[in-house]
Simulated scan of single mutants.
Amino acid sequence: MVMEMFLWTRPRTMKTFGLTPELAESTKSLAANQGLYNGFLAAGLIWGLLYPDASVGQHIQIFFLACVIIAALYGGVTATRSIIIKQGLPAIIALLLVLFL
């Protein structure tokens, strides 16, 4: 979230995402929107962790992790296949942990 919203045109972020300075500048608002989306997902997961009723909290976590997985699949189909691994695999692992721990 921080990289996408606030550091998009910094050299380290551009290297991480394989961007040229021109592309980073022209996609800055898109990246900020994506960062905000990621922030909302993180807030939902934290909400699920902190929810007073653990059963309800687990359902909240499952919902938000499913959103991340769906977004990863969509990104893998529409943008870059590697998004499925980079974004989807951590969410799948987290979902398995939520379900079985």
Rank of each mutant, 00 (worst) to 15 (best):
G57W: 12
G75I: 07
L89Q: 08
G39P: 13
E25M: 12
F64P: 03
R12M: 11
L65I: 07
S26A: 09
G88M: 09
R12N: 03
T9R: 12
A72Y: 01
F40P: 01
S82K: 06
E4W: 00
K15A: 12
L73C: 06
G76K: 09
L95S: 05
T9L: 00
I92L: 15
A54S: 14
F100N: 09
N33S: 10
D53W: 06
M14C: 01
Q61F: 01
V68S: 06
M14Y: 03
A32Y: 04
F100K: 11
L45T: 01
T16Q: 09
I84E: 14
K28C: 02
E22F: 05
L97K: 13
V68M: 08
W8A: 06
S29M: 06
T9M: 04
V98Y: 03
L65H: 12
A91E: 04
L36S: 10
L97S: 11
K86N: 15
Y51T: 04
Q61M: 10
T16P: 00
G75D: 05
F100W: 14
V56A: 01
N33H: 07
P11A: 15
S29W: 00
L65P: 02
S82C: 02
K86I: 05
S55A: 14
I70Q: 05
S26K: 15
T78S: 14
R10V: 01
L30Y: 06
A79N: 06
V77A: 14
G48D: 02
E25Q: 15
L89E: 05
E22N: 07
Q61Y: 02
I60A: 13
L99N: 09
G75N: 07
G48N: 05
T27M: 14
F6P: 00
A54N: 07
I84N: 14
T13S: 02
E4I: 00
S26V: 04
L41D: 04
I46W: 06
L50R: 11
Q87Y: 03
T20N: 13
K15C: 01
A43H: 09
W8M: 07
A43C: 10
W8L: 05
F6C: 03
P11H: 12
L101K: 12
M14P: 00
W47H: 13
K15E: 12
I46H: 00
I92S: 10
A72H: 01
V56D: 00
P11K: 15
L99M: 12
F6T: 02
T20G: 06
G57D: 08
Y37S: 10
P21Y: 13
A43E: 09
K28E: 04
L30R: 14
I84A: 15
A71E: 08
P11I: 13
V98Q: 03
T78H: 15
A43D: 09
T20E: 14
V68A: 09
A54G: 01
L41E: 09
I46Y: 02
M1G: 15
Y51V: 05
L7M: 09
L19K: 07
A71F: 08
G75F: 11
S26R: 15
F40I: 08
G48P: 00
I83T: 07
L49S: 06
